[in-house]
Nucleic acid binder design. Structure first.
Length: 527
RNA sequence: GUCCCUAUCGUCUAGAGGCCUAGGACACCAGGUUUUCAUCCUGGUAACACGGGUUCGAAUCCCGUUGGGGAUGCCA
């Protein structure tokens, strides 16, 4: 059967990198296996799901090249299916209204008491739980309520599903049975029998069972049934809860492999039962570790910069973000880091995904981004730079050909597309001059005199880098200055800064005559 | 509190009992190339959380401790 994977986000505002990383891993896994990658939008939270949020999501996926197969499924269109499924579960005795049945009580999913033949349930063995002495135990179709003692001796209320306590015996302090849960009275309880309250209990003795499954990234995972509870699948207002909707849609969409965040492992134990009782084969699962911030903590609103849109605005290339995110929690195993999409699809393997959270490192990502920019075909870089520069007001008055020359000159020293913000001196007289640069390069009389001569030469020389270089060398020689002594003074006078590309080519880009004017202007302004 | 997961340089990671005096990348430091800066090249600092076991041999397996994360919602 062809693998079918899905990305099922809730569109509630911005797209978080943790979220999009899940999408990327799903996409990679699907493409690697030659399976389908399906997008399902879980928009059932009417309050928070907006059209804008959906558009943002779609845009992010498009920007990152996450193409999906088949039509997008909007969860709100499936409401009837969800409710039908709930009804089936109730009819089969796998779900119930607690207490007196009413229109306005929620529906609980019941972890099935008879589940020994489920392929994902196994018997662990006999177990006992010590109770707070002389406490009450309530046994009902909705499970068990009992009181234990915390290590500090405080009484703690516990609730668990009935299925967790196969062959339960409630014992008193002398190990005398106070109550026994047989298949018969379990049946009675499950079909709506009155709850039983046992007083003076001291311990619970039962056969422990556990749910288990093989996670494609985390390996063998299990959880005892007595640590689980029945859970709500339909709210009292009649709307389906995540667990119901999510599982139903996975069934209707025939999903065979679910790749999602680590925070869902606990849900998996519940969902396994839901697939089974809904008559479906459970899919395989892979749970991805979380991405945490520079403090090693989960991203919060305060971190602010963890949204895909922010990275785009900061001048990160989509292919670089994509590549960097694959490196968070995954590695090729052969020291390759900068990899093309094709190489990633080829190498991607869920089994190589890390089990523990990974910290996002903006510096390393910027470095990767720089590598991507450096490797860009110059024509492509010019185009992207031009598009990106639309964000800056100075672009309006810039001639495209002039811009392209600057782009060619600056590509190799661009790390982030936002570095273009500093290109403004190519197109306009600098507004600010670096004070240290002025002090060092525009203040000494000897340099000022030489600069004036250079400006004079600039009035008539050819408009190319070689001529600029020759002119500067000539002035230096004539004035007894050491070679290159004029480079930085010219840079400061022309660009206002002390760092940048080759000054000869920079002058050529700006225009030799224009530079002559700027030098005189700078000299006058600092006189 | 309980349950589940997890632990290699500052960070991302390689590592499936001997190839490990632990490899790569980012960052950092030093040197070199260069008309400035960046790039680039060379070299360097830096890690198996701790304690027990198992074994001829453990970063790797087991147990415990500690740290971290998650779950414990009529959120998803």
């Amino acid at each position: 059967m062809q693998p079918r994977l899905r990305f099922a986000p809730s569109p509630t505002g911005q797209v978080h990198i943790g979220n999009i990383r899940t999408a990327i891993f799903n996409w990679l896994a699907a493409r690697h296996m030659g399976g389908k990658f399906i997008l399902r939008i879980e928009d059932t939270d009417l309050e928070r799901s907006t059209k804008e949020a959906i558009d943002t999501l779609l845009e992010c996926m498009n920007w990152l090249g996450l193409d999906y197969d088949e039509e997008v499924l909007y969860q709100t269109t499936q409401a009837q299916h969800h409710l039908d499924a709930a009804k089936k579960l109730i009819d089969d005795g796998n779900a119930y209204h607690p207490g007196p049945v009413s229109e306005h009580s929620p529906v609980y999913f019941r972890i099935p008491y008879c589940c020994d033949d489920y392929p994902f349930v196994r018997t662990v063995g006999p177990a006992t739980i010590a109770l707070a002495s002389g406490s009450d135990v309530v046994v009902s179709g909705a499970g068990l309520t009992f009181t234990t003692l915390s290590p500090k001796g405080k009484p703690v209320e516990n609730q668990a599903c009935l299925a967790g306590f196969k062959d339960l015996a409630v014992l008193d302090a002398d190990d005398k049975p106070l109550y026994e849960l047989t298949d018969d009275n379990a049946c009675a309880l499950l079909s709506g029998g009155e709850p039983v309250t046992v007083s003076g209990a001291a311990k619970l003795k039962f056969i422990r069972r556990e749910v288990f499954y093989d996670d494609m990234v985390k390996g063998h995972l299990s959880k005892p049934l007595d640590s689980m509870r029945d859970f709500i699948i339909v709210r009292s207002d009649g709307s389906p809860v995540f667990h119901l909707a999510n599982v139903c849609d996975d069934i209707t969409q025939n999903i065979t492999l679910i790749v999602r965040g680590d925070d869902h492992v606990e849900n998996t134990y519940r969902h396994l039962f839901m697939f089974r009782t809904l008559g479906a084969e459970p899919p395989s699962y892979a749970h991805l570790p979380m991405i945490v911030n520079a403090q090693g903590k989960p991203y919060s609103k305060r971190d602010g910069d963890a949204f895909v849109g922010d990275f785009r605005d900061k001048g990160v290339l989509p292919e670089a973000l994509f590549n960097y995110l694959t490196l968070l929690g995954w590695s090729s195993g052969d020291n390759r880091e900068k990899m093309t999409r094709e190489e990633l699809v080829e190498a991607f393997d869920l089994a190589r995904v890390q089990h523990s959270p990974a910290q996002f490192d903006a510096v390393k990502m910027a470095n990767l981004n720089g590598q991507y920019i450096a490797a860009l075909d110059p024509a492509v870089f010019r185009e992207r730079a031009w598009e990106f520069a639309a964000a800056y007001p100075w672009r309006e008055s810039v001639d495209r050909a002039a811009f392209d020359r600057v782009a060619n000159l600056m590509q190799s020293r661009t790390k982030l597309m936002t570095d273009l913000a500093a290109w403004t001196y190519f197109f306009a007289v600098p507004v600010d001059y670096d004070p240290k640069g002025v002090k060092k390069f525009l203040t000494p009389d000897q340099l000022r005199a030489a600069l004036a001569k250079a400006a004079e030469k600039f009035d008539s020389i050819d408009e190319n880098a070689k001529a600029v270089e020759d002119a500067l060398r000539a002035v230096e020689n004539g004035d007894g200055l050491s070679q290159f002594a004029l480079n930085q003074p010219v840079r400061v006078a022309v660009c206002g800064v002390t760092v940048g590309a080759s000054i000869y080519e920079t002058v050529e880009c700006i225009g030799v005559r224009e530079c002559a004017r700027r030098i005189r202007g700078a000299l006058a302004a600092t006189a």
